[in-house]
Design a protein around this nucleic acid. Structure first.
Lengths: 126, 126
DNA sequence: CTGCATGCAAAAACTTTGCACCGCC
DNA sequence: GGCGGTGCAAAGTTTTTGCATGCAG
């Protein structure tokens, strides 16, 4: 049985209004404004829980700590090899890739995660 | 200047003959057979180095420690939500996704990583 | 009241790093 | 010989967990 918690609610709302895919640490720092006594453990517990429920996305970028995204609509992510920033990326024509992937596969494909790597507009030479 | 090392060579060869995407710990355990005194630090150093050189791939699956893949040919990965195993997946028709992704993007796309999630053949109900 | 959620702190899990010595070039 | 690589151990980073208390149902 899942019980309501003001902290969880606040964490989810925070993520919904951020577009930079914060880390647990960043969430924690920002939560402290409204909940001075909140603990990092609580942040981690709620982030994991929300990710399991599918209400947020967890991103493992391969650089540093995991990041979290409140946008659950299908979209992709770009990670800058120079500055490490994480950007949203809308890419058309990838909706069918679960089906493509399942064609020669005996198990069940339930979802996917795509990370693009390169140089972000700020770090790009041009 | 990069200097030859028997340990690095052995790590690379080990990864080339494994298809289960071992963790650093697993590489370490196996290296100890040939190099009883090898240290975990050396394993991590060489895995990072090889990944930077593009001779192996580092996989951040979102579950547990990073994994490593000696197969540098373009291919994708499947991660089982039940048992956590990581399988190779050949998916046709995804070669162009860097181009698709770059179309509305101001930076530079240099590469991508795709993870599929679901139930592997062993964990699948059927 | 009952039990899940929290705060706090300790610990676990994973990875990196400093330093003295070793071995490739 | 000179310098990068190694082994060892310590430390750093990120995440999880145990326990007493707090609060939603």
């Amino acid at each position: 049985m899942l019980k309501y918690s003001r902290q969880r609610e606040a964490i989810k709302n925070f993520l919904l209004q951020r577009y930079d895919h914060p880390t647990a640490e960043t969430v924690y720092t920002n939560m402290k404004e409204d909940f001075p006594n909140i603990s990092l453990g609580t942040v981690y517990r709620n982030l994991s829980l929300l990710a399991e429920l599918g209400e947020i996305q967890k991103l493992s970028t391969g650089f540093g700590p995991d990041r979290f995204d409140g946008n659950t609509a299908p979209h992709y992510h770009f990670i800058c090899n120079s500055c490490g920033c994480v950007l949203d990326l809308e890419v058309g024509g990838l909706d069918h890739i679960n089906i493509l992937a399942g064609q020669d596969f005996d198990g069940e494909i339930e979802g996917h995660q795509v990370y693009f790597y390169g140089k972000c507009p700020n770090c790009s030479p041009s």
